[in-house]
């Protein structure tokens, strides 16, 4: 699954740790999602999209990484 996490984070000037704290996961989890090593659950994907204030399809798409 592709995602725009790294880009969206950079736009807001957030570190991985900052995003991790905001969505209540570990920094390793953010890194794993960003690098495509972990596909988040639906609830976590929605939480991430909500944190960026975007619809989920603007953060994730269903294509293979």
């Amino acid at each position: 699954m592709n995602n725009r996490l790294r880009l969206l984070r950079a736009e807001r000037g957030w570190s991985q740790a900052e995003l991790a704290g905001r969505i209540d996961v570990s920094r390793q989890a953010v890194n794993a999602i960003e690098t495509g090593k972990h596909d988040p659950s639906l609830s976590l994907a929605f939480r991430i999209a909500r944190e960026f204030g975007l619809p989920i399809e603007q953060v994730f798409d269903g294509g293979e990484a």
Partner: peptide, 10 residues
Amino acid sequence: LTGEARLRQR
């Protein structure tokens, strides 16, 4: 709390 502070708390 900032995200980083919340991460430390976690």
